[in-house]
Design a protein around this nucleic acid. Structure first.
Lengths: 109, 109
DNA sequence: GCTACTATTGAGTGACGCTATATACCAGTA
DNA sequence: TACTGGTATATAGCGTCACTCAATAGTAGC
């Protein structure tokens, strides 16, 4: 992955994953697959798992351990109330930034 | 500044500053002021100067030392050819990310 | 001498995403 | 039995970035 993308994902990837979880609960492996599906083809699994652990420690998600037919038990994460608030804050921050950049890019202010 | 904003600025602030320099050459103190002007009210001076040093080391900007009437000499930075290329790459990366997030936000995919 | 504005620099910190590796469970197959 | 491959999670170590805090330097006005 490009270096620029790596840096730009900092802080953003977290929001992306929370946004994915806001649709429905999912587990790590599934989330990684969904990210790839959506164009983030180079995001490593380790990155996602570490992020999920952080989200759990921050109290943004609830966890449920569910047995899998094809491997070790899955840890299914679901967004809780605090996570939803945090996600809204994320969108506010993102929108602010996106507006400024939009202006910078087209405006030639 | 919010933590989310701090993290989200990683990789982005660099592009913002380069975009500012793409309009016209400017020096650090001036750039900081312009950032505040544009809504980034809480970006510390130290942050900007460190970023400018990095950009210089990466060879993205040319530097000229010019005496000031009201203080120490100014270091005026101007975007060079490599910097322009890098800025274009930045916009490509940003657009990719912005599109995905747009989709995630509205799409409810 | 003191304050205030202009202008740059540097040490130390915390957070994040990446790399690489390890572990675990099951199915098919040689 | 041993091996391969897909599923599923975890973690140590790394580099980069923005932030905090402090220091330094030049000029002007009181």
């Amino acid at each position: 992955m490009g270096k620029q993308m790596t840096e730009m994902l900092k802080g953003t990837l977290e929001g992306i994953v929370l946004a994915i979880l806001s649709v429905q609960p999912e587990y790590g492996y599934e989330i990684t697959a969904r990210l790839r599906e959506q164009g983030f083809s180079d995001i490593a699994e380790g990155t996602v798992y570490a992020l999920l652990v952080r989200n759990e420690q921050k109290g943004l998600v609830d966890v449920e351990k569910i047995p899998s037919e094809k491997g070790p038990p899955r840890k299914v994460y679901s967004l809780n109330a605090q996570g939803r608030e945090y996600l809204e804050e994320f969108w506010r921050t993102w929108n602010f930034l996106a507006e400024r950049l939009e202006q910078l890019h087209t405006g030639r202010k």
